[in-house]
């Protein structure tokens, strides 16, 4: 289902240093969204013409949640949006994480703002009676939001050791892996370097891993062919897939990170 909609803002609040949670009243998407999918947010009249893609971070009633980090002019503008304002969005875009019911352990690995789609996935898993092991890594303590209502088992880490495990999220996972029951299905989102590193590790340890990737996108619909990611095996002579349309979720062993 793809719809271009004007939707009211239900709430928009700070949840950690530079991290905000935006709730949009959109019953249509709240009903149909699956973890991993994203929406485009439009900025009419901006000199920066591209819409910005955001993973859906959760569903609360008739609202979809967007978790965003303030990094540039568009997210600085978003920070000023007030309940009752309306914005334009396009959704539902992209594919979704594939759940493997046969796995004994579901591991979620988030680096920084990559936590967004995994929060939705954690909710989804818990609705099915699955308690995920959720690794969330940040640089420093104040970047962690309050995850009190998450039903997952949390493993927090920070680069500077100010909260939880000292180190990155992949190192934290490596520390804990021996305690987790196999077979394991892992799902991750975060910076490219983290995903690259994690993909190599999971391949070595024979852990099925799905990645939600991020690329600069112009359209989100597969029209511009801009957001390509290279695959290990070409299909019909084409080694590129589109993050917006074929993804954003890919099996880690399909993706070629070296380029």
């Amino acid at each position: 289902m793809k719809q271009h909609l004007s939707v009211p803002i239900h709430s928009n609040r700070k949840v950690a240093q530079d991290i905000y949670l935006l709730e949009l009243e959109c019953p249509l998407f709240a009903q149909a969204a699956r973890p991993g999918q994203f929406v485009n947010i439009y900025f009419p009249g901006s000199l920066k013409i591209f819409p910005r893609p955001f993973s859906i971070a959760g569903i609360r009633g008739e609202c979809i949640q967007i978790l965003y980090k303030v990094v540039g002019s568009q997210t600085r503008l978003m920070r000023t949006w007030k309940p009752g304002d309306s914005i334009r969005i396009l959704g539902l875009l992209g594919n979704s994480f594939e759940l493997d019911q046969s796995a004994e352990t579901h591991v979620l690995l988030a680096g920084g703002i990559g936590v967004a789609p995994l929060l939705f996935l954690a909710d989804w898993l818990s609705e099915q009676g699955i308690q995920a092991h959720f690794f969330i890594g940040v640089q420093t303590e104040n970047q962690h939001a309050d995850y009190a209502d998450l039903k997952s088992r949390l493993y927090l880490s920070s680069d500077d050791g100010s909260i939880g495990f000292r180190g990155n999220v992949v190192e934290h996972f490596q520390e804990v892996l021996a305690e987790l029951r196999r077979p394991i299905r892992a799902y991750a989102c975060g910076p490219d370097a983290m995903l690259h590193n994690l993909a190599g590790y999971c391949l070595e340890k024979e852990i099925d891993l799905q990645l939600s990737l991020e690329k600069v996108m112009a359209c989100g619909l597969g029209l511009c062919q801009g957001c390509v990611v290279k695959m290990r095996k070409p299909i019909d002579g084409n080694s590129y897939k589109l993050v917006c349309k074929d993804g954003p979720v890919f099996k880690a062993d399909e993706v070629l990170f070296d380029e």
Partner: peptide, 19 residues
């Protein structure tokens, strides 16, 4: 068929884009 150029393929520029 053509698979096209390696990424990055697009960049946003003021009131426009380069592809």
């Amino acid at each position: 068929p053509r698979e096209g150029n390696p990424p990055p393929r697009i960049v946003e520029t003021p009131a426009g884009m380069i592809n």
